[in-house]
Amino acid sequence: MSNNVLAFAESRGGDLRRAALEAVTAARAIADVRGGAVHAIIFGAPGIGAHAARLGAHGADAVLVVEHASFADNNPEAVAATIASKMAGYGAFVCAASATGKDIAPRVAAKLKVPVASDAVAMTASASSITVTHPGYTGKILQTLTLTASPAVVSVRPGAFLPKENAKAGAAESVAPAGDPAASRVKVTETAVGNTAKLDLGEAPVIISGGRGLKEAGNFKLVEDLAAAFGNAAVGATRAVTDDGWRPHSDQIGQTGRLVSPDLYIACGISGAIQHLAGMRTSKTIVAINKDKEAPIFKIADYGIVGDVLEILPVLTAAVKQAKASG
């Protein structure tokens, strides 16, 4: 078995995603124990190889660059087939458990006839096995799982392995795709990117989330203003709000939405239903603003303010702006 580890360098629309650097960082943790090298693999339209240097700066000894026009959009069949065809030289494959990574990992694993250890928040490697901690039961239970299959296929939860600078060669090597990527049976006909300036919920250190207590869709402006005042914040929502169409479904946090663990989570007019808590209870610091002092959200909030969110938000936004300005 090879001690080398292959990391999936996720990109979208030609841009490298933070998930790529997290995968490389997690791969490094395995390779360093085993005395192996980390290679990253990146797919994209011609030109994507330019990201090799950044992958190298975060710990990739080499970067396999697979350029083809049909990798401009997601092409999971061809991506998974190419990765699987390269795995003979590796003892492990690591990707982030992002929407794309979760799509790729089980495909690669099944092609290699091995299981996948999904969505790890912690990981320890030995020469022949990898043990992961994987939250289940809507975050209420931590499962410890040991993977003994070879190669090992692991996906790591976004945010759990923060990208670390770790200068390695990052030497780019051009690699041909396995088969004809244009012949994939699954075709993406359109990729609609939201506001690209907007930070992704999985990547933002701060999340400002709104619930039905905001009274109407238009009042989300107050939440967006607070997010803008932080500068490093994304906006989330409860299902009550996404069901009513105030916010897109992709903003939903909870059991059936996104699972997030930012440094700071501010819940505005959110009751704190168990299904919502399932998606955010691992946030480092939680602030809640709710007019009902009995609201369950206060049971898990580090700092609670009882009061009208519509009145408090503008005051908080101004105070955050001022705090940011004064450093």
């Binding site: 979208r12 997601n74 929407a99 993406v188 990729t191 609609a192 990117v193 939201g194 992709s250």
Partner: peptide, 8 residues
């Protein structure tokens, strides 16, 4: 997807 969607 995160902050985006695909038609497939």
């Amino acid at each position: 997807l995160e902050g985006a969607y695909e038609l497939v």
